[in-house]
Design a protein around this nucleic acid. Structure first.
Length: 254
DNA sequence: AACGACGTCAACCGCCAGTAG
DNA sequence: ACTACTGGCGGTTGACGTCGT
């Protein structure tokens, strides 16, 4: 079911994601968030385009994704909403907690579409669609849906595929979140802070990230941009800042 | 056992809207 | 007003699994 991995002309990897790539993406997004999908693969050490990373995260790796078979309740809701608004998959999936638009779309094309067509053939009346609750009742249905509903049939395949994730999460102790930040105090950037950063070992090839209101980030390469960073942020308040080890060609980063 | 037809779904592609400069 | 960039959306593809002959 997966596409054979290959590299395109520009050296970007395409096709099925490997477990190692998944681990890198999960580790990075969990730790730093998705501040810029296009830049993210460079920092995460992935030879993927940002679009591919976003898709992989949104459709497969997000922790709140519900897996397993669709319940009858979910299917009825999809049929009802599709009747009302057509192929608005993102809108429909928004009413199904834990389901992605891609998943809903696939399920429609592979299963529900034929079912609806068959029902329409059997009866000239609108069958189950007409009998389903009107739009005003959709919320009643969705209220009972949960990403981790016990009614969902979680397949063993999914469990096997995500075994590495369980191991990964188990290995995440407090130091996972604090190790870099503990070396570079966050908050107000002061001269002694800069000294502390400069005195760190192996910072020559580090990228330095500054967060603004947890909304945007700015990056510096320590050996080239450090004076710029000091001019811009000394004695100013920022949410957080930390170094990010980067192995490779630094011209690629900027 | 071998083969083809069909089903499934992760991943790709092109397009569009929103936003910043 | 224009351009470039980015994220998001929906349509489509391709490879593997399953089923029937």
């Amino acid at each position: 079911m997966a596409r054979t991995p290959f590299y395109d002309k520009s050296g970007m990897r395409k096709g099925t994601w490997s477990a190692e790539e998944d681990r890198k993406l999960i580790a990075y997004v969990t730790r730093y968030g998705c501040w810029n999908w296009r830049q993210l693969p460079k920092f995460a050490g992935l030879s993927r385009c940002g679009k591919s990373c976003r898709l992989r995260w949104m459709n497969y790796l997000r922790p709140d994704i519900k897996r397993g078979n669709f319940t009858q309740q979910e299917e009825e809701l999809i049929i009802q909403m599709h009747k009302n608004m057509g192929n608005r998959w993102s809108v429909i999936s928004a009413e199904l907690p834990g389901r992605t638009d891609n998943e809903v779309k696939n399920h429609w094309h592979t299963s529900l579409k034929k079912r609806v067509q068959q029902m329409n053939t059997v009866s000239n009346e609108d069958t189950i669609v007409a009998k389903s609750p009107a739009n005003s009742h959709i919320s009643d249905i969705t209220d009972s849906l949960s990403p981790f509903s016990s009614s969902s049939d979680v397949s063993s395949t999914s469990e096997n595929d995500f075994g590495f994730l369980d191991t990964f999460i188990e290995s995440m102790d407090e130091s996972f979140w604090l190790d870099d930040l503990s070396n570079t105090p966050s908050g107000i950037v002061q001269n002694n802070t800069s000294c502390a950063i400069q005195n760190q070992e192996n910072t020559t090839n580090d990228v330095f990230l500054v967060s603004h209101n947890h909304m945007s980030y700015e990056s510096f390469v320590l050996d080239n941009d450090f004076s710029n960073f000091l001019n811009a942020y000394t004695e100013s308040t920022v949410d957080s800042f930390w170094t990010h080890p980067y192995e490779g060609d630094m011209s690629y980063v900027l």
